Amino acid sequence: MSAQPLSGAALRSRTVSNRLAADVLDAAVAAGVGPDLFAQRTGISARDLTDVDGRIDGVRHARFVEFMCSLSPSIEWLVERRCALFPHFPALGNLCFNARTLRDAIDAFMRFRPIVGEFDFLFFRETADWVQIEYVAEFMPQHCLQALANFQVLATLIRAYDMTGTTLFHVSLTGRAPRNARLLADYFGAPIQFEASANCMRFAASLLDRPFSHYNAPLAPHLLQQAQQKLQQSQRGYRFSASVEQLITALVTDPDNDMPGTASLLARVCERLETSRWTLHRRLRIEGLNFGDLEARVKLDQACRLLGETQRSLSEISEMLGFSSQSAFTRFFRSRHQMAPQAFRQHQQQWNAVSSCESARA
């Protein structure tokens, strides 16, 4: 599995918790890199890190990861620091460490990872004997620091659900071995394979569905609600679906644009956002939407506007909005507005006439 590199609008549209940047700054300072140089190279100032709920835009997040990767292998900060993620994000940690089974815990982690950031992907594969989690980065995939950080976090979570304490993790990373690779082997319990074709971590599947003895069922709904609220808070300043909907509207209403079908429309939106179809669908799913939902919403809004504000025929409107025929447009409109387009137009004309009379009397 691979992802297209990010740039331009796609980078600007992403956000990541500034807690990650604060960790990187601490590690850099401990390794002799001053905060002034860090700010100069990343664009992240000390003021940006004061709000514990703050977010870093995608461009600056990419810069601080590139900065840390450029210092490797002289700084192997992840190896020596261990995982500090869950203490920074208690809503995520509390939910993940109070699940019925490890399977539920991993599912919660993958579902609510956008609380932390929106720059990478985890893929879960299971056989009768083992579970494999693959990490895919959307930028700087040639470096393995990001994969290593995620695998350390997951190993911390998985070990909490292993009552025997014997879990070994077989890890393969795409990057070159750091100078202190032995510490990684000690941490995961097995030697690491470097310069691999993909970033993967495997462990025994027998752990997945064992009941967790410390699971607190009455508390679980409250922890889920907290995580949902935190996720909404992290996304409140930016909704990816809003940008997608704006682009669809611009394409649909462009008088010089031959209205394409759904596949071509999707391709044009991806081109404008500088992202892949796969990434676009994945990010919309996080917000509980899909491309078809947004396309239908835009076309319905524009249909209502054209029916109410213009005298264009139904045939013209259906063609403008990219429907294959007038009958297809009528079926679409009726299914969503519970009336035929012509009936809606008559209703709107009557309403406009009444409104005009009332305004004249006033």
Rank of each mutant, 00 (worst) to 15 (best):
L71F: 03
L247S: 05
L173G: 04
L207D: 07
A3V: 07
R312Y: 07
D209E: 15
C200T: 13
N98D: 14
H143G: 10
L78E: 02
D186Q: 14
L208F: 08
F329T: 00
A46D: 05
Q348D: 13
Q348H: 10
Q346R: 15
F124D: 10
M201A: 07
P211R: 14
A21H: 02
A22K: 11
D104T: 06
F64H: 00
N150A: 09
Q232A: 14
L294V: 08
L314C: 05
Y135I: 02
M1E: 11
C270S: 07
A147R: 00
F38Q: 01
A31S: 09
A27C: 11
I44C: 00
F86M: 08
Q232W: 05
I115P: 01
R268H: 12
Y187W: 07
V252N: 03
H281Q: 09
A28L: 04
L251G: 08
G308H: 06
S197M: 12
A190W: 09
A296Y: 02
Q338K: 14
G261P: 08
R345Q: 13
D57A: 07
V65C: 03
H143L: 04
Q342R: 14
I75G: 00
T167A: 10
A204F: 07
Q311N: 15
F291Y: 00
L95D: 04
L231H: 11
S197G: 14
L314N: 09
A155H: 04
A10L: 10
A217I: 09
I44M: 00
N94S: 12
L273Q: 05
P90K: 05
A31H: 06
T330C: 11
L231F: 11
L300K: 02
Q4V: 05
A3R: 07
L224M: 12
T310Y: 05
T127K: 08
V116H: 06
E287W: 08
M201I: 06
A137D: 03
V269I: 12
H143W: 14
G117W: 02
K230I: 01
Q40G: 01
L37Y: 11
L306D: 00
F332V: 11
R125N: 14
F203M: 03
R81M: 10
R60N: 06
R125L: 06
T166C: 06
I192G: 06
R182E: 11
S264F: 12
L321M: 10
Y215K: 04
D256V: 10
A360H: 15
N18V: 15
R239I: 08
A160K: 07
S17L: 09
V244D: 01
Q193W: 14
E118H: 06
L183N: 10
H170L: 09
T156A: 09
G237K: 04
D53G: 15
A181I: 00
F194S: 08
R19E: 10
R345Y: 01
C200S: 14
R63F: 02
G34Q: 10
R100I: 08
L314D: 04
L251P: 03
G237F: 05
G117N: 06
Q228F: 03
A105P: 02
S264A: 15
A343T: 02
Q193I: 15
R47K: 15
A190F: 08
Q40W: 01
D129A: 10
S356F: 13
F112R: 05
D209A: 13
V52Q: 14
V116N: 01
I115N: 00
C200K: 03
C144Y: 07
V131L: 13
